[in-house]
Design a protein around this nucleic acid. Structure first.
Lengths: 162, 162
DNA sequence: GTGCAACTTGAAGCCGACTTCAAGTCAAGC
DNA sequence: GCTTGACTTGAAGTCGGCTTCAAGTTGCAC
């Protein structure tokens, strides 16, 4: 919890504070999402601002961005200081738009399910579920994400993740 | 488009009608999601009801379920006929609950982003984004899904993918 | 100056949901 | 009966986002 020297964080400290594993941080570095200086012995030392970058990346993921997309978005923000209101609001509003789209999509799906309850559905060719935008939208496997914090203990047990 | 004989579909026909690749259908079969009879020569033939099962699985995925979870859910519905209103409504309402949770999560995130716009945020330790449930919730990578139709090239006002 | 936790590296592994491949077989229209 | 496209198989590959591993090195408290 206490900083060792200066304001530099070891990878372990950054991991603890960001909630990410050290392996993930090294991975982020490899992808160019964060950057570290090195000690004489070769160990990583992070500036406190890295904490912000990491938080930004995590938030980006929750908005549905890939790490690559997060990297692109990071490029539009200042490196070593907090972004200004103006700088941030551009990013934030575009993310909010994404979120709105995602919500709209979920609402549509929910409504379809409701319709199906009403119509005693799943009777082929009549049901909205079947003739959904599947056909249109399925060009490939596609990135199909669904925000879901902890499917956990509830109705949905989720993949063990090893 | 026309059925060859009886009411049985070849894998190609099922693929075309369901919008899935034949490879995906074989994969589903391997997982026990769908089932096929075989011709004398060993080729798969599907009953029309398989179309319903496939549609069900796709819908399950959109709700955020894994194929394994979809398989479990399928087990609660009749094999070869359309489910009754009662049978279906149980599934549908539980899915709607999931969707509601997902929507709620997105709303929370959106609100946080809005707060950040207001506060000129990302200034560490003050920002909601940082002290989000990240710490608490991050036991691992977790299944993190975000419903998003086309991450790239869409209407979405988001960063250039490359 | 030593002991030990925390760090270093690259390579390999894992997960889910598929796709791709190669080499061979089947079905059906002419 | 032949041709041709649709089908068969198992194994391996892909993708994103990491984790795990093994074997060696650093940093710091005592």
């Amino acid at each position: 919890m206490t900083l060792s020297r200066h304001d530099l964080l070891t990878i372990g400290q950054l991991a603890e504070r960001s909630g990410l594993a050290t392996s993930a941080l090294r991975y982020y570095e490899k992808l160019g999402l964060i950057h570290a200086t090195r000690t004489a012995g070769g160990q990583r030392r992070y500036q406190r601002s890295t904490l912000r970058r990491v938080a930004f990346v995590r938030a980006a993921q929750r908005v549905g961005l890939s790490l690559e997309e997060a990297r692109a978005a990071l490029g539009r923000l200042p490196q070593d200081r907090a972004p200004s209101t103006g700088e941030w609001s551009g990013v934030a509003t575009s993310w909010q738009d994404r979120i709105d789209q995602q919500i709209a999509e979920l609402e549509r799906l929910k409504k379809k399910l409701g319709g199906c309850i009403g119509c005693g559905c799943l009777s082929l060719s009549r049901c909205a579920l079947y003739n959904a935008d599947d056909r249109a939208g399925t060009a490939g496997p596609g990135a199909r994400y669904l925000l879901t914090r902890e499917p956990s203990t509830g109705p949905g047990p989720h993949p063990p993740t090893a």
